[in-house]
Amino acid sequence: MGFFRDISPIRAVGDLKTYWFDQQDHKWRFLLASLAATTTIFAAFFSESGFEVQWKRPEITWVTSFEPGRSDSEIAAENVANQERKEKLEAERLAREEERKAQYRRLAEQFGMDTE
């Protein structure tokens, strides 16, 4: 607890006053330059923040891609067509993937690597 006995706010203010008011004028210039730099940085952050003061309700644009008067049979036919298209695309993707794997296997064989 000897450390805290030696600390005094009054002595700290006196030390600060002695430090700043001695005969070195460059300290004031550096203080002003550092304050100007800090103020400039904070002003740039504040001006670039772009926050809006007042909240605005977002505009919603509803996009409808189906006719409202479709029958159940039309919906079912469209679902079947979409499912067929999805399965076709998935089969094409799997074929491309298998071809790529085959290419890598051929490349590995050319370099004498074990692929299993």
Rank of each mutant, 00 (worst) to 15 (best):
A44F: 07
A44E: 03
A44L: 14
A44K: 02
F45R: 12
F45P: 00
F46I: 14
F46N: 14
F46R: 07
F46K: 08
S47W: 02
S47D: 03
S47V: 06
E48S: 15
E48W: 14
E48G: 15
E48Y: 14
S49W: 07
S49V: 02
S49L: 12
S49K: 04
S49N: 08
S49C: 03
G50W: 00
G50H: 00
F51E: 04
F51S: 05
E52H: 07
E52Y: 06
E52G: 03
E52N: 05
V53K: 03
V53Q: 06
V53L: 07
V53C: 03
V53I: 11
Q54W: 02
Q54I: 04
Q54G: 03
Q54D: 06
W55M: 13
W55C: 11
W55Q: 12
K56R: 15
K56H: 15
R57L: 07
R57A: 14
P58M: 01
E59A: 12
E59P: 01
E59C: 05
E59T: 15
T61I: 13
T61M: 07
W62R: 06
W62M: 02
W62I: 08
W62A: 02
V63L: 12
V63Q: 10
V63Y: 09
V63C: 07
V63N: 11
V63K: 13
V63M: 09
T64Q: 03
T64M: 01
S65L: 15
S65N: 15
S65D: 12
S65I: 14
S65K: 15
S65T: 15
S65R: 15
F66A: 01
F66T: 01
F66I: 00
E67A: 11
P68F: 05
P68L: 10
P68Y: 10
P68R: 14
P68M: 11
G69H: 13
G69S: 12
R70F: 02
S71W: 00
S71T: 15
S71L: 02
S71Q: 06
S71D: 08
D72A: 13
D72Y: 10
D72F: 10
D72I: 13
S73G: 05
E74D: 08
E74M: 12
I75V: 10
A76G: 08
A76T: 11
A77P: 00
A77C: 04
A77V: 04
E78D: 11
E78A: 14
E78M: 14
N79A: 09
N79Y: 06
N79K: 12
V80I: 10
V80R: 08
V80C: 02
V80Y: 05
V80Q: 06
A81P: 00
N82I: 09
N82Q: 12
N82S: 11
Q83W: 04
Q83E: 05
Q83G: 02
Q83F: 04
Q83D: 05
E84C: 06
E84Q: 11
E84R: 14
